[in-house]
Computed example of a mutant assay.
Amino acid sequence: MGSNKIHTTAIIDDGAQIGEGTRVWHWVHICGGAQIGKNVSLGQNVFVGNKVIIGDDCKIQNNVSIYDNVIIEDGVFCGPSMVFTNVYNPRSLIDRKSEYRSTLVKKGATLGANCTIICGITIGEFSFIGAGAVVNKNVRPYALVVGVPGKQIGWMSEHGQQIPLPLEGNGEYVCPHSNQRYLLIDNKLQRASQ
């Protein structure tokens, strides 16, 4: 943890793995089984559970709790106060720790402020979840999802710009900011190799 910046109020349990260049801010708690990559930023009051994996170059904003069985790939942005769950139907009087459902957030995704990600789903690469959305089913790569319950309303580029293509069908788009080319083929958006 040589090049890491860890605030004195942070609690890091023995056994936690934290990559180089990671910044851990005020009142963060990282459990002993957590695996955190390089150049990650964990904002104020973040909690990271034992069975959590966070990739490189992620930004976890203030007041986010990442519970067991959540895997976050490289380059993911988790907005302030967004929520992960790990039990689908929790009850205080019933122990359901054996029923945790795994959640996968793929590379480059953005999870907006105050959104909720229901356990057991996959959030696709470079998708964009709008602030306050409640997502209870898998999200396609590059999808723009908003609302309660979450609904796809469009597509997003890797640069974070909305792509003016239909939700279904075929089409082509070039991002004016990055010159990256995107192809919509059979209702699936993908970045064209260059």
Rank of each mutant, 00 (worst) to 15 (best):
L93F: 11
V64I: 08
V28H: 08
A192D: 03
A192L: 14
I66C: 05
W25A: 07
I30W: 15
Y182N: 14
P141T: 07
C115F: 06
K188Q: 13
L144V: 08
N69W: 13
G160M: 09
C31V: 04
G21Q: 04
H7R: 13
A192T: 04
Y100T: 00
H26V: 13
V174S: 07
W27S: 14
E168S: 14
I129H: 13
N86V: 09
Q180T: 00
N170G: 09
M82Q: 10
C115Y: 01
F126V: 11
E158T: 11
F128I: 05
S157D: 02
L42E: 00
G120T: 02
R191L: 15
F128E: 07
V83G: 05
C31H: 14
D68I: 00
G160C: 13
P176C: 13
V134I: 15
L111E: 03
T110F: 00
W155E: 07
C78S: 15
Y142L: 00
D14V: 01
P164G: 12
Q190D: 08
G15R: 09
Y173H: 12
V87D: 14
I53Q: 11
I6R: 03
I118G: 08
N50K: 06
Y100N: 05
D74F: 14
S65V: 00
I118E: 07
G169W: 15
S127L: 01
I118L: 15
V40Y: 01
D13I: 03
D57G: 04
P141M: 06
G37T: 11
I153S: 10
C175N: 06
W25G: 02
Q44T: 10
G32P: 05
G19Q: 10
V83D: 06
V76Q: 06
N62S: 10
K107I: 04
G21K: 06
G112F: 00
K59A: 04
N89T: 08
H177W: 02
Q44A: 15
C31I: 00
H177S: 11
D95H: 09
F128Q: 02
G37S: 01
N62L: 03
Q162R: 05
I121R: 03
D57C: 03
N45D: 09
T22L: 05
Y173V: 08
G171A: 10
D57I: 09
G147E: 05
T122M: 07
G150S: 07
G21L: 03
G33C: 08
C175T: 04
F126T: 08
E168C: 05
S92W: 00
D68R: 07
S178Q: 10
G32L: 13
Q44I: 10
H177M: 08
Q44H: 15
N39G: 12
E20R: 07
T122S: 15
L189D: 11
P164A: 09
I53M: 05
N179H: 12
H7D: 15
G37V: 03
T110R: 05
E20H: 11
V145S: 10
S102N: 05
N187Y: 03
Y67W: 13
Q162S: 09
G33T: 15
F128K: 02
V76F: 01
L165I: 14
C31Y: 11
H7L: 00
E168V: 11
I71S: 06
I185K: 10
N4P: 07
V64C: 03
